[in-house]
Design a protein around this nucleic acid. Sequence first.
DNA 1: ATTATCACTATACATTAGTATAGTACTTAC
DNA 2: GTAAGTACTATACTAATGTATAGTGATAAT
Lengths: 121, 121
Amino acid sequence: MNKDCPVTLEACMGMIRPVRDALDVLSGKWKIPILISLSFGNKRFGQMTRDIPKITDRMLSKELRDLEVNGLVQRRVHDSVPVFVEYSLTEYGHSLDKVIHELRDWGVKHRERYAEPDKVY
Amino acid sequence: MNKDCPVTLEACMGMIRPVRDALDVLSGKWKIPILISLSFGNKRFGQMTRDIPKITDRMLSKELRDLEVNGLVQRRVHDSVPVFVEYSLTEYGHSLDKVIHELRDWGVKHRERYAEPDKVY
DNA sequence: ATTATCACTATACATTAGTATAGTACTTAC
DNA sequence: GTAAGTACTATACTAATGTATAGTGATAAT
C-alpha cells in the first residue's frame, strides 16, 4: 500500500522546492564562507581574500556580486582617496544565520564521527 | 584597526571548516531531495524516481551510493522473488532533519520575497 | 625606483556535475 | 507475445563550476 501516494508526493515537493531555492542562492564553494566572513563584521575586498583561504580574486569578486544581486550583501563605496569599498551583510543576509548555524553544528558532529585529521584546508 | 585580527581569522575558519564538511556530504542537486523523499518513509528505487521529478536512474543510483557510504541511508535487499530493495534513512540520516528544516524555512521566505511564479520544476 | 596595496577584470583552461540514451536479466500482467 | 516493471550499469556527451595567471591604473610606502 501507499505506492505513489499523492499526498506524500505533494508533501515531498513542498519540501524539495524551497530547499532547492535556498541552495541555489548558496550554491558553490565560496558563498557561505563569504557570508561567514562578513558575519564577523564589515570587510574590505583585500581583507576577505585573506580571511578565506585559497579563494581567488575572481571568485570573490564574482560571488560577492551574486550575493549582492540576491540582496544578502551590501556594497558601499566610500569616495575617499584611495577608494575604499566596504562589504556588509544586509538584514536579509543575517536571516541566514540560523541556517548557517545548523550547518556548522552538523558539520562539527560529522567531523567528530568520521575524524579526518589529515584533511588540509 | 582590527585589520587581519588573528582571533577573527581563527573564528572564521572554525565556522567555515565544519560548514564545508556538511556541504560536501550534501553536495549536488539530488542528495537533499533524496533525503527528503526518504524522510516520508522507506522507499524502493522505482518509487523514488517517481517521487523526485526529473531525476535520472543514473543519478539516483549514484547519489544513493554516496549517501550510503556516508552512513545517511541504509540499503536493504529482501531476497523475495522478484528482488525487492528497500532504502531508508539511518538514525544518522535523521540527524540532518533540523538542517533540512531550516533550509526549507529559509527557502519559503526567500520565495515569498522574490516570487517567481513562472519557475517550473 | 621599486615594490606593495587597492579593488578589481580578462582570458584560457581543467575539473566536476549532470544529462541523454541505451542496455541488462529477470518477472508479471494483459 | 508484447509491454511494463524491477533495480540497476555503461557510455558518451554537455554544462556548470572553479582555477591559474596576468594585467589595470591609481596611490603610498621604503
